[in-house]
């Protein structure tokens, strides 16, 4: 197994608030890693470190390292555009642009400014939609507004939009929380397909989802990574009492 993302004594402060405390973890290629923990534990903050989304918040400071492919992405000279191309993010509410399905997918490619031919764009749209298993459903309506799609289709489209710029890592922040159980199950199936090509990190409140879909799981509490283990170990035989109390609903 190959480490894709490694954190070393990673710390993060929002002003005076210490949100991540000495987080040490390794996220591996072709595996799905779930981060679980109560609200405010730092799991979304950790996720947002990996594409430097926290930079958008004023007063954020970091310490330690976050390595992707061995390079510290917290270094000041990091090319954020290149980083965010390599590390894509899916959010809780699907957020397609108010454009056509086609334009949504090629948006990332276009804004990078490179001259890409029409036929190349068509090929990107097709392969991206195939990647999220939407091609057969949408191939005849690529010019329709993306906002006409169902919530699940929109979420898939948002994933397709990422695939179009050929990332390595997919970060997913509660990607199913707006979806019904059937749509959730289908997105989870898609995640299992995608992991063969990508490194996936998912933050979820839904413990059953973490247990079902992930290969590794980290449990966070008050900014600390309490336990990080193979998912089946963590849910059947957690080592730390705090993990045990959280996943059995005794926490709080």
């Amino acid at each position: 197994m190959t480490d894709k993302i490694v954190t070393k004594d990673l710390n993060l402060w929002y002003g005076g608030f210490h949100a991540l405390k000495d987080v040490n973890a390794a996220f591996q290629v072709n595996r799905i890693t779930a981060i679980i923990g109560p609200s405010g534990c730092g799991k979304s903050t950790l996720l947002r470190v990996f594409n430097r989304m926290n930079d958008l918040i004023e007063g954020v400071r970091t310490g330690g390292e976050a390595l992707i492919d061995g390079l510290d992405i917290l270094a000041p000279d990091t090319d954020l555009v290149a980083l965010r191309k390599k590390v894509g993010m899916v959010f809780q509410r699907p957020n397609p642009f108010p454009l056509s399905i086609y334009e949504n997918i090629v948006f990332g490619v276009r804004i990078r400014g490179a001259k890409v031919s029409r036929s190349e764009l068509d090929a990107i749209v097709e392969s991206s939609l195939r990647g999220v298993l939407l091609w057969d459903d949408l191939r005849d309506m690529l010019r329709s507004p993306a906002l006409r799609l169902s919530l699940e289709q929109r979420q898939r489209l948002c994933i397709a939009r990422l695939l179009a710029v050929k990332p390595d890592v997919l970060l997913m922040d509660e990607p199913c929380s707006a979806l019904d159980p059937q749509a959730t199950a289908r997105i989870e199936e898609l995640m299992r397909e995608l992991k063969h090509e990508y490194t996936i990190v998912i933050v979820t409140h839904n413990m059953q989802q973490a247990a079902r879909v992930s290969d590794d799981t980290g449990f966070m509490l008050l900014g600390e990574l309490i336990e990080f283990n193979r998912t089946e170990e963590l849910f059947a035989s957690p080592r730390d009492k705090r993990t045990e109390d959280y996943i059995t609903g005794r926490y709080g």
Binding site: M207, F235, E244, T248
Partner: peptide, 9 residues
């Protein structure tokens, strides 16, 4: 209940 950890065991 979809029990976990010691509850499951």
């Amino acid at each position: 209940y979809q029990p976990m950890a010691r509850d499951l065991r």
